[in-house]
Design a protein around this nucleic acid. Structure first.
Lengths: 150, 150
DNA sequence: CAGGATCCCGCTAGATACTG
DNA sequence: CAGTATCTAGCGGGATCCTG
């Protein structure tokens, strides 16, 4: 674009990637992380293991929060195995979580956020919390809109 | 639900909404806002009108940032009219943006974030910026993963 | 200019069945 | 337990044509 403004060129130089551009990889990454399962998985991993009888110290403070496949499956109510596995794989591939296989009698697999994953986790927690805390307002707005346009 | 556990009732009482629960409206809202077009539209609206010859003071600081349909369409490179219109409608319905029709010669329609929209805008800007600023790391991680599993 | 209305394709979520 | 494999229905989303 020959008519690029100084502001645009500055932004380009600073960010290197621009999700507004069609072909930019960052748009594809944005599409990936803009996913409810991504938000919920990262949120779950920030909580760590749900306290279960028989595994007392599993989520003591300071310890990195990890969760087993079945625990995630339980916390993300309604998620299909396919979506859970698929989303976990893509998060692992992008270096956001680690997958650890412990060869116990029935195999044990745990997932844990990486440093990079933790940085996204903070952002996605905000998104999830925004949704939960503004639900009432949104619901009210929808009601207004629907009556107005009815 | 007669089989609600004490933990579930506690969570409900504290947060009112819990996106981890399958039927909860907040999960549906989370799914809605977890959308690349939502992130990009809100990001665009935070920028305001691109400076154009003939509309000098359109984006002066302090003034609420508004954009026309065609401006949004241009900035969100590659978006289809259908998705743009559809996403704008849902944002309007949820009370996140306002739609203003000015009956000029060719009709002028401008969109602007509401107070509620501004609160989400901050969150979604973080998501977009996270994607742009961590693109390199993610790309590197993908390369590693693909060679490792190759 | 700013959409509305259709058609239609692809992919992706979900259900089911099987395995190391 | 933690997946993989397969199938299918549904809809997200693009292309196209039309309108106030």
């Amino acid at each position: 674009m020959p008519t690029a403004t100084a502001a645009q060129r500055r932004a380009r130089a600073k960010a290197e990637y621009d999700a507004f551009l069609d072909g930019c990889p960052s748009r594809q990454l944005l599409a990936r992380i803009s996913d409810k399962w991504v938000a919920l998985i990262l949120a779950a991993l920030s909580t760590g293991s749900a306290p279960r009888p028989g595994r007392p110290g599993a989520d003591c403070a300071g310890e990195p929060r990890s969760m087993r496949y079945s625990e995630l499956s339980r916390q993300l109510a309604g998620v299909s195995q396919k979506m859970l596995t698929q989303t976990l794989r893509s998060l692992e591939r992008d270096g956001l979580i680690t997958r650890t296989v412990t060869p116990t009698v029935p195999v044990t697999v745990t997932y844990e956020a990486t440093a990079l994953g933790l940085s996204l986790q903070r952002v996605m927690l905000d998104v999830k919390e925004w949704a939960e805390s503004h639900m009432d307002e949104v619901l009210a707005n929808r009601g207004d809109y629907d009556t107005r346009t009815a």
